[in-house]
């Protein structure tokens, strides 16, 4: 049985019994969709953010860094870094300290970039929403392709030997902070019940922070669901599975949004006939190729590396869009 069934019942009850809207009308459909989806995503976010608070406590990025440098991983480190990028909540605030921290620990530039690229593309919140809107199977595909983009871009950028393309003053900091051990702050033992409460506080504070984006995203998605006719986009995008992918990727660059806000819109567009791969490229480009992110990374990378970084990620996103349009 669908575990979200009671939520659907609740949404039906509010829209048809309490508000007495006529079923099958645009407004009723949109509202019903909005109530159901925003509750479902809220439930998933609470659970996943709690789990992530636990993971983050036991595996902070500092430990990941130590893990990656402990031995020679023979290329497997690209995958590991990318995988860790998925399980670490990404805050653009931390991208520069992370960048420096990885490099000063002796982690290669390519591996560091694999982490940085994957982290915004796939994260715990986007996974929660993907499960809610597309189901487990497609979510797995989404996570796998996100990791693939991170790994491939990391490998390619690592091969270019562009270590000199890192900002001079940061390189100085990197040199100076080599061979620093993990902070003692992270090693202190805390009582178990204190931790349970702390995990809840952290998880909930994260959920609260992103939930407003979810509501906006689901709201726009609900309007599309209720008011745009089925097959609307198909009419205009005939044979559009090829050229719409790069177009969607380019259109998304000036837009900046959290993944949690774009995914509900993406789902609504797909249900009205936009090819899935095209919508996925659009979503990934909005979160992975944004201008604000570029401004932050500009602090660390010189133009050449930054341009290559963006070119690589864009290409990866376009290829993935095409791949999904081919198979779905």
């Amino acid at each position: 049985m669908d575990i979200f069934y009671p939520l659907q019942q609740f949404a039906n009850w509010v829209s048809f019994s309490v508000l007495k809207l006529t079923p099958k009308t645009h407004l009723a459909e949109a509202l019903n969709f909005f109530i159901y989806d925003s509750l479902k995503i809220l439930a998933l976010l609470i659970v996943i953010n709690y789990l992530m608070a636990i993971i983050r406590y036991y595996i902070p990025t500092e430990k990941i860094r130590d893990f990656l440098t402990k031995r020679n991983w023979y290329g497997f480190d690209y995958f590991l870094a990318s995988f860790f990028g998925v399980i670490t909540p990404f805050c653009s605030c931390s991208s520069i300290p992370l960048f420096i921290g990885f490099l000063s620990a002796g982690i290669p530039l390519g591996v560091t970039l694999a982490f940085l690229i994957t982290s915004p593309l796939v994260n715990e919140a986007s996974i929660a929403i993907f499960i809610g809107l597309f189901g487990f199977k497609i979510t797995l595909f989404y996570v796998a392709t996100g990791i693939l983009i991170g790994v491939l871009s990391g490998v390619i950028l690592g091969k270019t030997g562009l270590e000199k393309e890192i900002d001079e003053s940061l390189r100085e900091i990197i040199e100076k902070s080599k061979k620093k051990n993990s902070s003692s702050f992270l090693l202190k033992k805390k009582p178990f019940f204190w931790l349970l409460k702390k995990f809840w506080q952290e998880g909930w504070s994260l959920t609260k922070k992103i939930y407003v984006y979810v509501l906006i995203g689901v709201g726009v998605g609900a309007l599309i669901h209720g008011f745009v006719p089925v097959g609307f986009f198909e009419r205009y995008l005939k044979n559009g599975s090829f050229w719409t992918v790069p177009l969607a990727t380019i259109l998304a660059i000036p837009l900046y949004s959290n993944a949690v806000g774009v995914i509900p819109i993406m789902e609504a567009l797909v249900s009205k006939g936009i090819p899935f791969g095209t919508a996925l490229s659009f979503m990934m480009a909005t979160v992975g190729l944004s201008l604000p992110e570029a401004m932050i990374l500009k602090r660390a990378m010189k133009t050449k590396l930054l341009v290559l970084f963006f070119a690589c990620v864009s290409l990866g996103i376009v290829l993935i869009g095409w791949f999904f349009n081919l198979i779905m």
Partner: peptide, 17 residues
């Protein structure tokens, strides 16, 4: 800025703030 980053690194951390 750079001062802040240096201090964070000195503490062996990689997150901000």
């Amino acid at each position: 800025g750079d001062e802040g980053l240096k201090k964070i690194m000195e503490l062996g951390l990689m997150q901000s703030p």
